[in-house]
Amino acid sequence: MSHRILRTGLFGLGAALVSFHPGAAHEIVGNRFFPATLSIDDPGVNDELALPTVDSFNTGDNPPVRQRDISGEFAKRITEDFAISLGTAYTFLGPIDRTAAGANGFQNLETLFKYRVFKNAEHEFVLSAGLSIEWGGTGASNVGADPFNTYTPTIFFGKGMGDLPDTLSWLRPVAITGVVGYAIPERSFTGTFGVDPDTGAQTFDTEFHPQMLNWGGSIQYSMPYLKSAVMDLGLPDFINHLIPLVEANLQTPVANTLTSGTLTTGTIQPGVIWTGTYFQVGVEALIPINRQSGSNVGVIAQLHYYLDDIDPHGIGKPLFGGAAQPASPFARQ
């Protein structure tokens, strides 16, 4: 899914910029399996279903608000290299001190159009480009869904270290992925009429909607790769299915920032993914990088199905073209 910025607020509290983004793809490049990461989107183009993705954290509002999301996303290949995904989230907001009522509702629907631009098996490198559209007005305003569209052109990349020399063979299971997107709101500002409580005079408040640089990455150590492409250490089978990783998911206002400022917000997310032949399960901590990003350590977890492996000749087959090579992390063992 694209990097949507949720502007969460409750009872007139200052809004915090919180990134929500369930990962949407996995990818095989040579011997390298790139899993679907939980918060940033990776460069894969596949048929997949992420359901559910759940998270819980305290927002950067003052005082903070407890936010919980349950989301889902479906990705479908049109051709071998081009896919469209649809996703949304249901959000629960509530004051931590329980002194007021909470709010809940759907976030805006998001669509991501992604095309795999380049793939090199020898160097385990893949590059994709995409356009995410957040459809304004499809969600509930009381949980921060904007009434206007936001367009985010994005570049995705992944690089495995399998081409390192034999002297560095223990680093071959390492891989990095990255994403850089530029979010452009359809509306530059929103004006609101009000009344000054002291003088009774009419007021007009303007909130500018900034253009955002959405950026991040992950560093991973693949135990399946270690066993199949480097060395079988005879570890328990459960361990051989794990990919420990750390994600970074960050947002920086870069234009139209008069009311938002230019402070970067986001999270660092250490965790682990267990990969199977047909699905994966992942869990990560959500560690805010500053007070404006959140007031505690949260958590995110996801169950993710590989439809192209479950049914490669049916729902997992591109609409145009034949069944593709399975994208299982164990397909090349």
Score class of each variant (00 low, 15 high):
Ser128Pro: 05
Val117Cys: 07
Ser71Glu: 07
Leu127Thr: 02
Glu48Val: 11
Asp309Glu: 12
Glu247Pro: 03
Ile239Thr: 10
Ser132Tyr: 09
Leu17Tyr: 08
Ile310Leu: 09
Thr190Gln: 14
His3Arg: 13
Phe279Leu: 09
Gln302Lys: 05
Ile5Thr: 15
Ile287Gln: 04
Asn142Arg: 09
Thr8Ser: 12
His123Thr: 14
Phe189Ala: 14
Gln251Pro: 02
Pro244Val: 08
Gly102Phe: 14
Gln107Trp: 04
Phe204Ser: 02
Leu250Asp: 00
Ala129Ser: 13
Phe92Trp: 06
Trp135Ala: 01
Ala183Lys: 07
Tyr306Trp: 01
Ser132Gln: 10
Ile176Trp: 11
Thr154Arg: 03
Ile155His: 05
Arg187Gly: 08
Gly200Ile: 11
His26Pro: 02
Asp69Arg: 10
Val254Glu: 01
Pro244His: 06
Ile300Asp: 13
Ser328Asp: 03
Thr252His: 00
Ser222Trp: 06
Ile239Val: 15
Gly87Glu: 14
Asp81His: 09
Leu10Cys: 00
Val246Met: 14
Ile70Met: 11
Thr259Met: 05
Leu245Lys: 15
Lys119Thr: 10
Leu112Lys: 03
Asn149Asp: 10
Asn120Trp: 04
Glu27Thr: 04
Asn296Ile: 07
Ile268Ala: 05
Ala83Leu: 10
Asn296Pro: 02
Leu131Trp: 12
Lys119Cys: 04
Pro270Cys: 08
Gly9Tyr: 15
Lys159Cys: 00
Pro253Glu: 02
Ala25Thr: 07
Leu10Tyr: 04
Ala129Cys: 12
Gly94Pro: 00
Met231Ser: 15
Ser39Trp: 14
Thr192Gly: 05
His241Cys: 09
Leu86Lys: 06
Asp163Gly: 04
Thr154Gln: 03
Gln220Pro: 01
Ala175Lys: 03
Leu213Tyr: 00
Tyr225Gln: 06
Thr79Ile: 01
Ala255Met: 07
Val65Gln: 01
Leu49Glu: 02
Gly137Glu: 03
Thr267Asp: 04
Phe82His: 07
Ala327Asn: 14
Leu307Thr: 11
Ile219Glu: 03
Phe113Asn: 02
Gly23Asn: 11
Ile184Cys: 01
Ile96Pro: 02
Pro270Gln: 04
Arg116Met: 13
Leu263Glu: 14
Ile273His: 04
His123Gln: 13
Val117Glu: 01
Pro165Tyr: 08
Val174Trp: 06
Ala331Ser: 10
Leu242Phe: 05
Phe320Gly: 01
Thr88Pro: 04
Phe320Arg: 05
Ile78Phe: 15
Gly87Tyr: 10
Pro95Cys: 00
His21Val: 14
Lys114Thr: 09
Phe279Lys: 06
Leu51Phe: 15
Arg66Ser: 11
Asp166Arg: 13
Ala327Tyr: 11
Leu242Glu: 00
Gly234Ala: 04
Glu207Ser: 15
Val126Tyr: 02
Asn296His: 10
Ile287Thr: 10
